[in-house]
Computed example of a mutant assay.
Amino acid sequence: MPRVRKGQAPGKLSRVVFHERFAQSFKDPWFDPERDALARVEDIAWKAYSESRKAPLTQKAGEGFADPTYELSIEWLETRDRLRAAEDKRNHADTPSRVLVVVGAPRNDGSCPGEISKTFRLAQLCREILERERIEVDLLDLSLLTSDYAKRIYPCKGCVSTAMPLCHWPCSCYPNHALAQTGDWMAEIYERWVAAHGVLIVTPVHWYHAPSVLKLMMDRLVCADGGNPDPTSTAGKDAAKAKALELAGWAYPKHLAGRVYGVVVHGDVAGIEGTRRGLADWLDWMGLIDAGPKARLDRFIGYYEPYATSHDALDRDTGVQDEVRNVARAVAEAMKQARAGTLSAPGAKLKSPRPK
């Protein structure tokens, strides 16, 4: 059995440093009348941090888990139950077809940029086409991470690299109340992915890559690709137990497989092809099914033109607008075939000799 390597993480914060971190959220003078009350809250937070009180609300796992007596986070159980309900509803033949349209740009007019993104406009073109096809559209605008109060996606902690079964489906790393890592948007986003029959991602290129708001979500979806639906089987986050479980034989279940996808990537200078390939490869790896060549689009908008006139460039480029509409049409067509059981996906049922 491989040993668990240790020695990287520093020790806990000192009380002084903890105070400095805690106080950062209350620098506004409007909080001055409540400094005594905040000090009492800080003392409670310090105690919770010192005792690593990650999940203060738990209950016994119960039937269906490897260890029915294990105390599981109630918040995790509630998320798990919502995902199960969403999956059941999605699989019902009478459920209307649903596409999750993801806006991968961080820009909107409710924050510092002061203007909507071209990505949002392109996503609206997709939405219009899908709704004409009587398809329900769930618009997931990741720019809200930059403009909504306390809306956040925490980074993936990389549990999968220790052992796949340590990565739980849905993610159990958050919330972590001891570290004030609460309000994680992914608990809702997992449900929205599960509920969808198709996914259409629209994104710009940032420094040859997907923007940070999109990449945060992508990394946190690793648990959908091989994740462990039973945290009790690893006694929570017991690395040694997770390694043993993987080495005993792990199935690497693909929890989002079978959904249809399309991708629209746009840029102004470089990086569109690499980003489009990266997104498509990622979705392929998770077992999603591409909606054909017309559903994988990368285009420049306002090539080497000023940023200030980029919306005007999009206004003029009716060709790009129509190509984006075609991505939505391709997704709609493929999704209908997938739900009818007539979509051709050669090799989809072949067993991988090297699952991971």
Rank of each mutant, 00 (worst) to 15 (best):
W193Q: 03
S172W: 05
Y190F: 14
F65T: 06
E63I: 03
V102I: 15
S143H: 04
G110R: 15
D67R: 13
S111C: 11
S111L: 02
G64I: 05
T162N: 06
D94T: 15
R90I: 03
C173P: 00
V102M: 06
E191D: 06
N108P: 10
P106A: 03
H168P: 13
L83A: 00
T203Y: 08
R192S: 06
G64S: 06
N91T: 01
M186I: 13
I74H: 02
K157G: 05
R80I: 05
E75F: 00
L142E: 06
P165N: 08
Y70S: 01
I201S: 10
P155K: 13
P68A: 08
R127I: 00
T119D: 11
L139E: 06
L166A: 07
A178T: 07
D109W: 04
P106C: 00
T95I: 00
T146I: 00
L144G: 12
Q124E: 15
M164G: 01
L179C: 02
G158E: 10
R132I: 00
C167D: 09
A123N: 09
Y70R: 04
I129E: 15
T203G: 11
V103H: 12
P68T: 10
P68N: 08
I201D: 01
S172A: 14
T162K: 12
E128S: 14
C126H: 04
V202K: 10
A66D: 12
M164L: 12
L145K: 09
I129D: 10
A61N: 08
S97A: 15
H197K: 09
E136D: 14
W169F: 15
C171S: 11
V202Q: 04
A85I: 05
H197T: 03
G110C: 09
C126L: 07
L122G: 08
E191M: 01
T182M: 13
K118R: 14
A61M: 11
V160N: 00
R121A: 12
G62T: 07
Y190M: 00
I153L: 12
I153Q: 02
A195S: 15
P155G: 08
A150N: 09
E78F: 01
L142F: 08
A187M: 14
R132K: 14
T95W: 01
W185Y: 15
A66Q: 10
E188M: 08
P175H: 06
R84M: 09
R90T: 04
L130I: 13
Q124V: 14
E115H: 11
I74R: 15
T146M: 15
R127M: 14
V194G: 00
R107Q: 14
P113H: 04
R107Y: 09
N176E: 00
Y190V: 02
F120E: 09
